[in-house]
Design a protein around this nucleic acid. Structure first.
Lengths: 347, 347
DNA sequence: GCCTATAAATGGAACGTTCCAATAAATCAA
DNA sequence: TTGATTTATTGGAACGTTCCATTTATAGGC
């Protein structure tokens, strides 16, 4: 069981009775080699249990076949879906994506990026951790490594971004709530250090204004982008005098939290308080009641990001355009009409 | 923006007016270097924007600082939780885990493993894809690379496994159902090509036998380990004459599917049909009704696996013991008593 | 038979590190 | 002062590939 010295290209050469150059050529699938020679070499490779050393190869080849995916929260199913979309694209291009998780921790992110670069990746797809400093990617840019952001945008950075149309999504959702007769609306969850937050909140605000909801009839409460955060937001909101009757949530996780908190108070989500989510994760349709949410096509965004990356690698550039993915509101059962507006309904 | 030739250790040496050996020593944090010299070197590194080339280093150093995590289904939150547990341990050991997804595809798994080995990982933690052939890991074992399996075990393999006590978990859950008065039980989901399946099903069968349920009063229906699979299982079961009144599901995803299908038929999970899940993913407690499930401590299993891997790497061995993680039944609201047994309850 | 053209295979110099053995500089004992 | 010891620094030979420039073998044309 002792790990004997690993076989190298030279060992195979000896075994097969050819030169190391020939073996190298075979490994690269060159057509300069006579088929029967290639066969002999491949046989030797199999016999010896040879493992290709890509590190050594990259020493000469300059460009590797792995790209790094750095994700801020792997436990959020949304990102897992996106990762799967990317993988689909890369696989057919012969590229292997390695995923690393930063758990929303900028320090961890720094380490992970460093490690990936040292490993010699050909490119980086990053969904930045919250609180990432603007300079965090300077070194990577300096190194001329292709990099694209997904979902999140950094304040003043020229790195291309693949993200959904947050503004429009929020607009649509808000208009939906207003259309249901709600006149006191809330925006729940998220925090202002995220650009995405401002985009979604902006859509919410503009829709309110455009559709005649006075600013004093809107309530914005920041909070964690998790179930827990949603619960907290609802508590805060209902503690106010003249509370809102509907809320647009920063994402689905927050919305789930809100629904949970409503139930705990004996209120029925949908009937007693309308809630809309954002992202439309798979769970959304399985909740009771099924959650109305803004669908962003996570896998599609992942694929898009992967394509942009491939293009950048092939054209040896570090520039690319942003891509704003289409969104659409998926209406389910979590938004009834405003109770007070529709008194006629009640017994 | 053109990617100028990357700086090497020699460039820094020149910049700092020392030899490459000195730079190398500084990079490794050796205390053989005079502090002020080290400082000079570090300054040069910063100025030049140098990126360490780990591939080149590994050419001499034999062992790297990255380990590969190969996961069969990243979209299953269970595995994401496990991955996070592992990361926690590795991080403090200065090891960077790279995650790769196989999407239950043995071919993809083959590619991913090959790529990881070529990259020179120090070890592999694998949750094998369904349908993995027994020989799939022969090459890795031959190479003397430490490897541990999580969750799933391969038929006749001596690779150490970190997994929950499936048999006992299933036993507990089944006993719970029987205790509630159910006399016709089903086991839903999973397929017999998984060792885990046999473990869980075995626990179910033994509990039935031990607690006086005749074999003809049990129903086993195989199916996908997903919501969809759960839906299909329930349909099959209810189509039978004299159908079961309770089911142990292969995992939580199946259980969610079963609950969904019950609702669609106008049946209330818990009251009209008891269901127990397996894994206790976070969602379980948030469902309506909250799902009774066998908790397996996914993050804890991940940590355990990481520790075993570290030990193997340090002791340069490829052998280790299996670890069977404790399980416990978390009773929530998805298992009412058998309706037919408890007629007295009804109006 | 010779010359040229093509096909197949090969040696050797890189690539960016590490680490051993060797050197240079500083310190100390006598 | 001299030699021995300790402290800092340094060449140079690996490590396992790739790829250019050659060499060798094979075939074709005359």
């Amino acid at each position: 069981m002792a790990s004997r010295p690993k076989a190298t290209i030279l060992d195979i050469a000896r075994e097969a009775g050819v030169s190391k150059s020939t073996v190298s050529l075979v490994l690269q699938g060159s057509d300069l080699i006579r088929p029967e020679t290639a066969l002999k070499v491949r046989k030797a490779i199999e016999d010896v249990g040879y493992v290709y050393n890509r590190g050594a190869a990259n020493l000469r080849k300059a460009h590797s076949n792995v790209i790094g995916m750095v994700i801020n929260d792997l436990t959020n199913p949304f990102f897992a879906e996106m990762a799967v979309g990317m993988e689909r694209v890369f696989q057919s291009a012969g590229i292997v994506p390695f995923i690393a998780n930063t758990a929303e921790n900028p320090v961890r992110q720094e380490e992970v990026l460093k490690s990936l670069m040292e490993q010699g990746v050909a490119g980086l797809i990053v969904s930045p951790a919250r609180g990432t400093t603007p300079g965090a990617f300077r070194r990577i840019e300096m190194a001329g490594l292709p990099i694209v952001f997904t979902m999140r945008r950094l304040p003043e950075s020229r790195i291309p971004v693949i993200a959904p149309d947050n503004h429009r999504g929020a607009w649509l959702a808000t208009a939906h709530l207003i259309g249901k007769g709600h006149r006191r609306l809330a925006f729940f969850g998220g925090s202002s250090d995220l650009v995405v937050y401002h985009e979604r909140l902006g859509g919410f605000r503009e829709a309110c204004e455009a559709l005649g909801i006075a600013k004093r009839d809107t309530l914005v409460v920041e909070g964690e982008t998790s179930r827990k955060g949603g619960i907290a937001c609802l508590e805060t909101a209902l503690a106010m005098t003249d509370p809102p009757t509907a809320a647009l949530c920063f994402n689905d996780a927050v919305a789930f939290g809100v629904m949970l908190a409503l139930r705990k108070r004996g209120l029925e989500p949908g009937a007693d308080f309308a809630v809309v989510g954002f992202d439309d994760v798979i769970e959304a349709q399985h909740y009771m009641p099924a959650l109305t949410s803004v669908a962003v096509d996570s896998a599609g965004l992942g694929e898009r990001a992967a394509h942009v990356m491939l293009k950048m690698i092939q054209s040896r550039t570090t520039r690319a355009e942003d891509h704003i993915g289409a969104v659409n509101l998926v209406v389910r059962d979590s938004c009834g009409p405003d109770r007070r507006a529709g008194m006629g309904d009640a017994a």
